[in-house]
Amino acid sequence: MLLLSSGGVFAQKTEGVVHYEYQINWIKMMKKLPFLTQEEKDRMENTWKNDPDPKQKMNLYFNEKETLYTWGQDQQEYEDENWKSRNRELIIHRNFETEKRTDMLEILGKTYLVQDSLKHIEWKVMNQIKEVAGYICMKAVAEDKVKGQKITAWFTGDIPISGGPEQVYGLPGMILELDADDGTVMAIATSVEFKEVDKELTLPKLKGKKVNNQEFDAVISKYINDSIKMQRNPYWAIRY
């Protein structure tokens, strides 16, 4: 029996950046659509199973008080292709001291600016551990009632920041892996760097349609409902 402590364990590191890879498994996403028959789902899976889903590089800057989640590169470049695409507006800022959220999101053909208090996420902490990016993480689950998603987060107590990628936070440590709906969307940390990130944490000039939590949730849930009724996939136009 040995202790598996590295030299850094006792020194708390509370400022830096987590690099994530964000990936949508669109076959799983499509399988959620209630208006497709099993035959149509099988057909799509068989047809497209060899097409890799592109990975997006994302960064989460953090210190003890706040986190800022945004793109990890200034445009999207896909591994095997010469395809590049523009980054949509995406800034997710969490201030744990003032308990404020500031989200600037280009979704539904518009840029929304969500400014409100932090919503409380009801987490359940489970009995599994695994390693993500060199950190032992515990499993926690929650439910996103607006998008109807099952959220699984793997967090590490070794980075004592209650932040996380995308829209998740509020655990006793940094969330290094996010899994929505059994692998439909994954954000997995690839590495963590400890460094000064004051500059990166500063919010840029914000623009967009100002909404609060309630209004924003209403926009999303109405869009999902309408799209399902119109037999269209709603999940492309919102950040799943």
Partner: peptide, 9 residues
Amino acid sequence: KISYMGYLP
């Protein structure tokens, strides 16, 4: 519940 690196929760 207590977690600590290198130890069983």
